[in-house]
């Protein structure tokens, strides 16, 4: 079986296999090396070509790739000395949201990160990344600590959605998410969010009311999953309908830049974050440090006023605002990509 490789990755995998084969056989002959170089170049072009043409639904699949780096990978690669804190001080510790102190560059920050788990056991333990109310309450508790200490908050977002369960409803999932939305809107410290892979509806938004919302190139963020949307609107679970729903929902990073929801798209290594997690982490770190430095120069009242306006201006229904839109300080997907290419 393939290791969770996606259909559209198969030509890439096949070419990689042939390159490896030739590498093992080659005897440093000039013709072999030439052929190898040519194949490597073809591989680059092929990958670039395939990934530049991904449909919305294919991007969702990249976001869900079993080898895609997760919160726990970035905790190690982006931050120094992550110290985990547990529990909501009320009911229990929710493994679907990690929280703690860490260093980002020179600064102490508070990190909250939605956690999915790498293997079946870890996934089960983390409830497949679907938080319960205690997860949102833990996040809020550590964010309040961040406010007290004036530490910036970095929120790593990756969830299919908040958990739909009996206990979750008994303990007020609606109330926990609503409280986070309200308290994050007025938290007196800088907040930066990054959608790493899946931004599933209210479950993602519950840790995403931030000053700057960033998004990895192949991540998605939507009011509902493509499957959920297809089930409700088309009464269907066929792949084609799900793909149509994914397209209609405008859930890709480029769509969301266009809708002024996301402030910056962080480019992924060629072929997706899972092809080079280390490079992905470096790019993420660079973006986080840049935004943190910018936000730190803003006085707190001004920071809160801007945060209010950022969310307040979405869907004001005035055509003028829609067309003119406040695009200052935002980058298009193209700009973001260009900048990262130049920088890298």
């Amino acid at each position: 079986m393939n290791n969770g490789n996606l259909d559209f990755e198969k030509p890439i995998m096949e070419l990689e296999r042939r390159i490896l084969e030739l590498e093992s056989k080659t005897q440093e002959r000039h013709t072999d090396l030439l052929a190898l170089n040519q194949m490597r170049e073809t591989l680059q072009n092929l990958t670039a070509e395939i990934f530049s043409k991904l449909s919305a639904w294919e991007r969702v699949q990249v976001a869900r790739h079993p080898e895609r780096p997760q919160t726990i990978d970035y905790l190690g690669m982006v931050f120094d000395d992550f110290l985990e804190l547990h529990g909501d001080r009320c009911f229990k510790d929710d493994p679907a949201i990690k929280a703690g102190l860490a260093r980002l560059g020179e600064r102490t920050v508070v990190v909250i990160g939605q956690h999915k788990g790498k293997d079946t056991r870890a996934r089960l333990a983390a409830n497949y990344g679907m938080p319960n109310p205690e997860g949102y309450r833990k996040a809020l508790r550590v964010m309040r600590f961040a406010e007290k200490m004036r530490y910036p908050v970095i929120s790593l977002i990756d969830t299919p959605g908040a958990f739909p369960g009996i206990g979750a409803e008994e303990r007020g999932q609606f109330s926990a998410i609503a409280s986070n939305l309200m308290e994050m809107a007025r938290l007196r410290t800088p907040l930066i969010g990054v959608i790493l892979a899946e931004g599933g509806s209210g479950g993602a938004l519950g840790v995403a009311v931030v000053d700057r919302l960033l998004m990895l190139e192949n991540a998605w963020f939507s009011v509902i999953s493509p499957e959920g949307c297809a089930a409700i609107l088309f009464k269907s679970n066929e792949k084609e309908k799900i793909a149509v729903a994914a397209e209609a929902l405008k859930l890709t990073a480029v769509d969301l830049i266009g809708l002024n929801i996301v402030d910056e798209v962080i480019s992924e290594p060629l072929g997706g974050a899972h092809r080079d997690p280390q490079q992905m982490a470096e790019m993420l770190k660079r973006a986080l440090v840049k935004h943190m430095k910018e936000l730190e120069t803003v006085e707190t009242d001004e920071l809160l006023a801007r945060r209010y306006n950022k969310w307040r201006s979405i869907g004001t229904l005035s055509q003028d605002t829609l067309v003119a839109g406040d695009n200052r300080g935002r980058q298009t997907g193209e700009d973001a990509r260009r900048e990262d290419t130049e920088g890298g």
Binding site: L181, V223, I261
Partner: peptide, 21 residues
């Protein structure tokens, strides 16, 4: 949140919560 307005609907949750704050 109304599916047909996608992430614009979703963002209304944050917008209204901010106004209530």
């Amino acid at each position: 949140a109304r599916m047909q307005e996608g992430v614009i609907s979703l963002s209304q949750m944050a917008k209204t919560a901010a106004a209530i704050a």
